[in-house]
Design a protein around this nucleic acid. Structure first.
Lengths: 338, 338
DNA sequence: CTCCAAATACCAAACGATTGCGGCAAGCGA
DNA sequence: TCGCTTGCCGCAATCGTTTGGTATTTGGAG
């Protein structure tokens, strides 16, 4: 059925042992012999059998990455960073998505384990803590990227929202905003509530009043709907913070459709800094989450754990940062002379 | 090191054979015994060894998908469609990206083959035809999604641009446009030249003059740059067609930054209909490529080939279609009374 | 009580590569 | 010529499952 090493060996008139060594460069093979072998392999269209190889070596060479939704523009950049970090070190990556479904999440973990990945990174909140525990008890390195609450048992890459949040609020305050509204992500998502808390705290520290809060769904439509409610209020907010950029896009749209101007009438701030944030009109001011760093660190951390056989690695923190574009401006009715 | 079936067997006091059958439901096992086995497996944290399984069965259960760039918003939707079609039929998918690099492409194919995928779908132009040939000669089913030129040897899902192109041109013509410019994708990309040809033909059939053509790169910056050139021309075009939506976004931006209005001064039409196309301002009129259909058909086609052991399957065609939004309007200086 | 079928469980041979160990031959110095 | 090193290469055990071919038990019919 398939072409085996022994076929190559026969054609090159050597033993399978030699073929193996020639192909993997695991032992010196006479130049002439090696050539003969490689030629035979090419002629026969031979590809190593990964399972046989993995079976006997007991160790594969790929790391797993589990994310929730590939269509969410947040993830691709993360995936790419993880992937290229892995490739740089000579590893493959096995990608699974959960689509926010805990059953699929379970399958994803199972697939990872059955394929004996060297470690797995997870960025998805809908997650049985128990499963992760098992994973770790198994000795498989794991990192979570989504966690605000630092679970003890798994190494995390902590995403620190406080800096970005602080900068966002300071920015708004400097522009004279006081009536600030906040469209959060779904409260079921850890990262969403972490961000919410960071914003609330920054607001408090700045001595600004509590914001009006509406729970959104981190999608364009959710942001749009929430914004409609906000605009109907009286007095309406002069600035709207959104749980992510997608929601902010919805906000932008609704505000402008209502005949109001951004940022003259209402300022908008997103979160994530997805690629499109710079192409909205006006370009979106947003709290940047450095996904490339996140992805790289995730891999590096896993890699270290794998090498050192440690169950946990040093906790890393990556910082958010406000990037100011054109969707924020001086608050209406705060025409201070300057 | 790892936990084997024999460990589970010992703990449940049965043979490995029975464990295997209990876990895979491949042969009846007494309810009581099965329970004992599954419990033991759970207690021991047992995961099947995929390699051993695959090795002996000779057949895996995943299909491969190779794309060029995960950050291009065109792809995620395609991936998802492919994935969910696969999952519905009980298969996994192995995803690889090439990043437009033919060396990585080679590695991707190799990974697919080494892992004995049941078939592979490719959407990436930078491709050694030779590699694909091999693949097919190996007996591994393959489909290309990017192909305008129908290679003989591989089954294709043909993407028919002519309908969408025709509709786009008709739409523009109806609005009174005659000075039409076209920002193409890179000429190295098959799909790009296919689209270009479709547009050119539609233009000719409509009796419209040849358009001014600028080669872009299918990215925002490319579209922006090309548009700057176009705007500097005299007379400037009243409508700009773009090779994809990303470029169209760049066009939109440049036009509006130049103080012109879309669509009053210049109309813009994109291609792809990425998720963000409906959220640009104004919302983008574009030639939709049905990525979900593309992904689904790709899998289905592979699946069929795999089942029937056929090397080729019926050629499918998926149609593009114009979706009209707000970035197109009546041509300047064509105020016909109606 | 005997016999048979059905149900259940086990034995052992694969699957295709890797790798420790050992063999052979050529080259070299004494 | 002998003995040793060095450079190549092959033998055969091994990895953890699956699965065709039996063996054993059980229950009921004759």
């Amino acid at each position: 059925m398939q072409i085996r090493m022994s076929d190559v060996a026969r054609r090159a008139r050597v033993s399978v042992t030699t073929v193996s060594h020639a192909i993997n460069s695991t032992r010196p093979v006479a130049q002439e012999t090696r050539d003969r072998i490689l030629r035979a392999a090419r002629e026969l269209n031979y590809y190593r059998n990964a399972s046989a190889r993995l079976l006997v070596r007991g160790q594969g060479d790929s790391f797993g990455l589990i994310i929730s939704d590939i269509e969410n523009p947040f993830f691709p950049e993360l995936i790419k960073a993880f992937q290229s970090a892995a490739r740089e070190s000579g590893f493959d990556v096995l990608l699974c998505t959960t689509n926010y479904d805990s059953d699929e999440a379970r399958k994803a973990i199972q697939r990872m384990m059955e394929n004996r990945v060297l470690g797995v990174a997870l960025m998805t909140s809908q997650f049985d803590a128990a499963l992760i525990e098992e994973l770790v008890n198994n000795g498989t390195p794991a990192v979570r990227l989504d966690s605000g609450l630092a679970k003890r048992s798994v190494s995390d890459i902590r995403l620190d929202y406080s800096r970005g949040a602080g900068q966002a609020i300071a920015h708004l305050q400097a522009l004279g905003h006081r009536r600030i509204a906040f469209v959060t992500g779904p409260n079921s998502r850890v990262s969403a509530v972490t961000y919410t808390n960071a914003i609330l705290q920054a607001l408090a520290e700045a001595g600004l009043p509590e914001p009006q809060i509406i729970e959104g769904n981190n999608r364009v439509e959710g942001g749009a709907e929430a914004t409609r409610k906000l605009l109907a209020g009286n007095p309406r907010p002069t600035a709207i913070l959104c749980g992510n950029d997608l929601a902010a896009v919805g906000a932008l749209q609704v505000i402008q459709e209502a005949g109001l101007r951004v940022p003259e009438d209402v300022s908008v701030i997103g979160c994530d800094d997805i690629a499109f944030a710079r192409h909205t009109t006006p370009a979106l001011t947003t709290v940047r989450i450095p996904r490339d760093e996140l992805g790289r660190h995730a891999f590096l951390s896993l890699f270290k754990m794998h090498n050192s056989k440690a169950r946990r690695s040093a906790k890393l923190t990556v910082e958010t940062e406000l990037v100011v574009r054109r969707s924020t401006g001086r608050a209406l009715g705060s025409e201070v002379l300057s």
